[in-house]
């Protein structure tokens, strides 16, 4: 466990120490705040627009954090950092899990900051109390980091550095887009991820209760899918030749 946490803390420290991350979060705040000026262009739809922009930008932020993992693992393998780490009493499975946990923590911090910033901006702009469904919708975006990171980790281990991020983007996009495939039960939600389960963006605008039991179960599903993807990733990684 301590080995996993050592890898994880190294990952999140590396990203969260970068000043550019906070500059980008500030840019996100500006973009969210700019929705307030769309009152005329949207025929007084700017309140809903601000909520939607915040959720989309938070999803994009989560997306970017996951993409960073797909660059990070292949780069460490190529530069030999991974092999140096693996000379220590550390299994390849622990390495993959550590990287995934570090990425998830990074994502939680960044997406949490984006969500908090949005709540403050929204309250200042419209003087409204933050509705529970808004908090829940942002929470679901943050929780979606778990399966997204597992997808990223799988492709980062299996595919070369240049291809892994592209395939990850396509896979995550696909998993959010094809809710119709949910009828193929074993395939979809089992082997293929169903990230649409985390998508309650319209609830944030229109209200409507999302039960905490649903949020809890969807988090559990994220963990189960991650167990599958990380196991597959470490199985491949264990047979992979690295420098």
């Amino acid at each position: 466990m301590s080995e996993i946490m050592a890898i994880a803390s190294g990952t999140w420290r590396k990203i969260l120490r970068m000043k550019v991350v906070y500059f980008l979060i500030a840019c996100v705040y500006v973009l969210i705040g700019s929705a307030y000026n769309y009152d005329v262009l949207s025929l007084q739809h700017h309140r809903d627009l601000m909520i939607d922009i915040s959720l989309v930008l938070n999803t994009v932020a989560a997306f970017i954090v996951v993409i960073s993992l797909t660059f990070d693992i292949p780069r460490e393998i190529r530069e030999g950092v991974a092999s140096t780490l693996l000379t220590k009493p550390l299994g390849r499975t622990q390495y993959v899990i550590g990287k995934a946990v570090g990425t998830i923590v990074t994502g939680v911090v960044i997406c949490g900051l984006v969500a908090l910033g949005f709540f403050v901006i929204f309250n200042l702009a419209f003087g409204e109390k933050i509705a529970l469904t808004m908090i829940q919708s942002h929470l679901l975006v943050i929780l979606s980091l778990v399966p997204m990171t597992a997808i990223g980790a799988f492709f980062a281990v299996v595919l070369p550095e240049m291809i892994a991020p592209i395939v990850t983007v396509v896979a995550v996009w696909f998993s959010y887009s094809t809710g119709v495939l949910s009828k193929a039960s074993i395939l979809y939600g089992g082997i293929l991820p169903d990230l649409d389960l985390f998508n309650f963006k319209s609830h944030a605008v229109y209200g409507g209760a999302i039960g905490w039991d649903y949020i809890g179960l969807v988090f559990v599903w994220g963990l189960i899918f991650s167990a599958f993807a990380i196991s597959a990733a470490s199985l491949v990684f264990n047979y992979k030749d690295i420098k």
Binding site: S182, G189, G190
Partner: peptide, 23 residues
């Protein structure tokens, strides 16, 4: 690893089916 994957696929698919209905 294989056992974890099989169990995860089965449990994940069942849970996803339930969550889809709830959603």
């Amino acid at each position: 690893h294989v056992v974890i994957m099989i169990v995860a696929v089965i449990v994940g698919a069942m849970l996803a089916a339930h969550l889809n209905q709830t959603q």
